[in-house]
Simulated assay, not measured.
Amino acid sequence: MMFELLHTNDGARAGKLHLAHSIVPTPVFMPVGTQACVKGLDATDLGEILQAKLILANTYHTYLRPGAAIMKEFGGVHNFSGFNASFLSDSGGFQAFSLGANVKKTDSGVWFSSHIDGSKHLFTPESVLDMQYALNSDIMMVLDDLIALPATQERLALSVETTTKWAKRSIAYHKEQKDLGKASTNHLFGIVQGGVSEQFRTQSALELRELDFDGYALGGLAVGESAEEMYATIAHTTPLLPESKPRYLMGVGTPENLIEAIHRGVDMFDCVMPCRNARNGTLFTHFGKLNIKNSCYKNDPAPIDPACACYTCTRYSRAYLHHLNKAQELTYHRLATLHNLSYYLELMRAAREAIMHDKWLEFRAEFYAKRQA
């Protein structure tokens, strides 16, 4: 069994992902390791200090460099990076989406120009899986047709049609590899599209459900819609997906986003926000965000978050972090990133504990009460 649903409480779910390289308790937040690393951290930081069980690697970036050949030579991204727990790899579809004018979508796949040297490349449903096999990802994502919001009905319809078409090709190709005795530990997730339209989300979810993926992701959110529209779309879509399969909300977001998505039945998350915000001076705490650049922290002996027991908070003061940031010391990036990721990972652990003990609603209310205080 890949996913074990252990308990539900008022819509929130607690479970376990059984993967080749680790057992992952859910809900889970995945630190984003775009270039086969989380910016500013190494495998020891991730595995021993943060005790992360699952991180995300980016197919687009690792395809361009170091490339599939080197990944195969090292036996996959685990050996290459030194992080021995599990990896989820995206398909590269979001990066293709974000390249804008340098992208051309066709029936066969996505043509794009490398942001490194301008060279032309084609991602197909099959080729992105080949790259993910080279990574030896524990969880792989299919190529999908992601669009910005708002979008016309015609473009939403085309996105769902293309996503389903590519999903069928992906799962057929994945089955071929398994029939050849390969890909036995590489699990494949489908991605539900459809914007904020209940009609198109229903169509996409039901079409993908028929293909029997190992798990299902909600894609195409946090791309221009309001938070209320996103939450309504999540609430509409999750009941359409198999209860026995993991549900992954891609690229979202703030601590509030995570709490609300858990409340609506989501199990897995990733986002660059905790790492990017840390580098830019914004630190997350139980009581809201803190901008370490502010001069009020120049002489502050307190930790970033008095309620946090992370590596950074138990060793260093706000004054020291403020100094490192002002001095543009690289050490700041590591310590700030360790704190923000620790906050996110601990939020997931505490949420899971509350769900398992039927205290989810109390936990959710306390989460907001601390912020209001």
Rank of each mutant, 00 (worst) to 15 (best):
E207N: 12
A205Y: 00
L5R: 15
L283Y: 06
A351F: 01
A96H: 08
L122V: 09
C275V: 15
M2L: 15
Y368D: 08
D117S: 06
L129W: 04
H236K: 11
A12L: 06
T337F: 06
E353S: 13
G118S: 07
L143G: 04
G190S: 13
L361H: 03
E161S: 13
N79G: 12
L241T: 07
P25K: 10
T106P: 03
Y311N: 10
L338Q: 09
F74W: 14
D90H: 07
Y173L: 05
N299F: 11
L46W: 06
G265K: 01
K105Y: 09
A14N: 04
K105F: 11
H7G: 05
D179S: 13
Y297K: 10
A69E: 15
K175S: 14
T124M: 06
D270I: 00
K16L: 14
Y320H: 14
I191M: 05
V160K: 03
M30N: 09
L335Y: 11
L6Q: 13
K16D: 01
K53C: 03
H121P: 01
I139S: 04
E346W: 02
C308S: 11
D117R: 09
M2N: 08
A205F: 05
G281N: 10
A205N: 08
S197C: 07
H18C: 09
K175E: 14
L54A: 05
F74I: 00
P66R: 10
S108K: 15
F94I: 04
E73V: 00
A134Y: 02
S159N: 06
A365S: 13
E126A: 10
N257R: 01
A217R: 00
N340R: 09
S119M: 06
A134E: 02
G288Q: 07
A261I: 01
T163V: 04
K326H: 15
E243K: 11
H323P: 07
Y216D: 02
I234E: 00
A134K: 00
E154S: 12
Q328A: 15
K178I: 11
C275T: 15
Y311E: 13
S170Q: 03
V110S: 04
L341C: 11
E346P: 00
P150V: 11
G224I: 06
R155S: 13
Y316T: 09
L218K: 02
G40S: 13
D90W: 06
A235N: 11
L211C: 06
T285W: 02
F87K: 00
H187Y: 15
M273C: 01
R279V: 07
I355H: 05
L122A: 10
P246D: 10
H18M: 07
L54T: 02
F123I: 03
R13H: 09
C310L: 09
L324G: 05
D144P: 07
L88E: 05
G93W: 03
S86I: 03
K182Y: 11
L56F: 07
Q153W: 04
F3D: 01
A85P: 03
F269S: 02
L211K: 05
F87C: 03
L218M: 12
N58K: 10
T202E: 14
T162G: 01
Q328D: 15
A36K: 02
L19V: 05
D117I: 04
M71S: 01
A319C: 05
P246W: 06
G288R: 08
D144F: 04
H323E: 10
K175V: 08
H115G: 07
Y297N: 06
H357A: 14
R247C: 01
Y173I: 04
H339F: 10
G100V: 10
